[in-house]
Nucleic acid binder design. Structure first.
Ligand SMILES: [Mn+2]
Ligand SMILES: [Mn+2]
Ligand SMILES: [Mn+2]
Ligand SMILES: [Mn+2]
Lengths: 152, 152
DNA sequence: TCTGATTTGTAGCCGTGGCTACAATTAAGC
DNA sequence: GCTTAATTGTAGCCACGGCTACAAATCAGA
């Protein structure tokens, strides 16, 4: 059998030209960046609902440090992608898909912070950097982090 | 004197409202994302010049996995920001500022990959994830990585 | 040399995610 | 209940970074 396609979660690049490999890496980073915003919103909305009982656009905007108009537009994108719904003046809600995403993202966020702290990064720096790093950590890397932290 | 402004490299958030803290983290991540492209270009151009003797827009585009038109527009931004110059059909060059950026970025890239591998991430996953992660690793975190790797 | 391939540049489109300004709606307080 | 404040939504602007299509310039080979 030729190549025997692997059935892993993250598709393999296959060893063709070496430059295509690099292109593939950049492409992955671009994709991750494109979903980063959705991930942060899902996590934040879930947090707000959990701690405040509701997630209003204004609060979301303030937490993210953007204008409410920007937040509303991004929320529109979340709805468009089937991750959220909203009732006027009743705040934003997550669909099952949105909830699932939020759970995954929250767990990943924590793991990344914990890993950073574990290798000696000061708590506050870990919190700051993790907010960006998290979106680029693959499942495979995440498993390695968990194992390193003794949570295999 | 009020507040006594701190003179650290990374400005401090100051402990005002707790929500402003979170906003600050998101803002940092957004800033990092905005410079990510410039960093990748600088590093790649430097690499190409080192290995091929020149960095032509077409080659840059192929390595990044984007169209040549996209690469040319991004190179225009590099020039605009004083990081690169270019002679027609003679390729792209880095200004001193660009060179400095490239060196910093390359060193950081390596450190990130090495850290990932050191905590058990498979080589290929480390290479892929590092391409995105690197742009969100602060100086402080980088120092922690170096120390962890025994290169303090 | 000159002709065809390669490279580079330009133009114009799109979606995203910022912003301000203004409008409309709802909530709160008197 | 009315008035005012807060919230939400809309409109319109911008820069960025993707893309395709086309044009121009350069390079290379016959
Ligand atoms: Mn984040
Ligand atoms: Mn997060
Ligand atoms: Mn990168
Ligand atoms: Mn890199």
């Amino acid at each position: 059998m030729p190549k025997s396609k692997s059935y892993k979660l993250d598709a393999e690049p296959a060893d063709l030209p070496p430059e295509a490999d690099q292109a593939h890496r950049f492409e992955k980073a671009r994709t991750a960046q494109a979903t980063a915003l959705l991930e942060d919103y899902a996590e934040l909305i879930s947090d707000l609902i959990g701690t405040e009982g509701e997630a209003r656009p204004t609060d979301i905007a303030r937490r993210l440090g953007v204008s409410h108009a920007t937040a509303i537009k991004s929320i529109a994108r979340l709805k468009r992608e089937g991750l959220a719904t909203s009732k006027l003046y009743r705040g934003v809600f997550l669909t099952p898909a949105g909830e699932m995403l939020a759970r995954r993202v929250r767990a990943r966020h924590r793991l990344v912070v914990d890993l950073l702290v574990a290798v000696g990064v000061p708590q506050e720096a870990a919190e700051v950097d993790a907010e960006g790093i998290e979106h680029h950590v693959s499942e495979e890397t995440l498993r390695a982090f968990a194992k390193f932290l003794g949570r295999a």
